[in-house]
Write a protein that binds this DNA or RNA. Sequence first.
DNA 1: TATTGTTATACTCTATAACTATA
DNA 2: TATAGTTATAGAGTATAACAATA
Lengths: 134, 134
Amino acid sequence: MVSNAVSQEFARKVTTEGVTVAEWSFMRALYDEEAVAPSVLAEKMGMTKGAISKLADRLLAKGLVARIESEQDKRAHSLLLSAEGRAKVPVLASLADENDAEYFGVLTMDEREALDRTLKALAARRGLRNIPAD
Amino acid sequence: MVSNAVSQEFARKVTTEGVTVAEWSFMRALYDEEAVAPSVLAEKMGMTKGAISKLADRLLAKGLVARIESEQDKRAHSLLLSAEGRAKVPVLASLADENDAEYFGVLTMDEREALDRTLKALAARRGLRNIPAD
DNA sequence: TATTGTTATACTCTATAACTATA
DNA sequence: TATAGTTATAGAGTATAACAATA
């Protein structure tokens, strides 16, 4: 219930910025790097290359992502954030923070810290690493 | 990440029983009651009546849900679990328990209790009540 | 008119698998 | 052949809005 409520509300918030949650995840994954091959992104996000291809199409159409062709390998290319896309990431990140603050604000500081610690321990012990797309 | 991992794994598990997570939520919502009007179910599950209608169609086709027509109001009907559907709920519930045990089993008893307590407090303070469908 | 449900339409998310171009 | 991506197809999940039947 908690996770659903938090992410539904976040979805509503990012929509006002013209992107979906999956698109945000995609952009966030690109933010850490210069340019990334679709196949690498698929691995990083735990999605198929078909799904990445479709998401990339939409983000290219929105002008938030750009692509550069590989010169060594004519099949390959890399994806990167456009200037506009890169500028948008902190805005979306602050929506995420705001959303978290809003939801978890009803907890005491101790509760928040305990929750944070426990979830991080869980993720570490289970080796979770995929960026959630929804 | 945690929530995504848990629910993706659960989705995989229920699929082996021939239902989707949304269908499971629907069945779970019916389990507490005799027969429920689609409109009431929509309210309870936080979905539109159109979405309920579509889900109900699938569950009727699978024989897990049945409907009874209202005699007072010829527009209305109620939905209820079929015998097969009712028998399936505990099976699916045990998959959910198994899944939770599997995921949260890497936590100590203290960590699990703290997590449980905090999430329940959060849900209570935020007045969350919708059954998550995904 | 108002209400109960259904249906039409649309979009996102995602997978699988077939396909194209290149290596 | 093998690999990088794209595309075709499909189905789930869901919303909005138009609609039919009945109240």
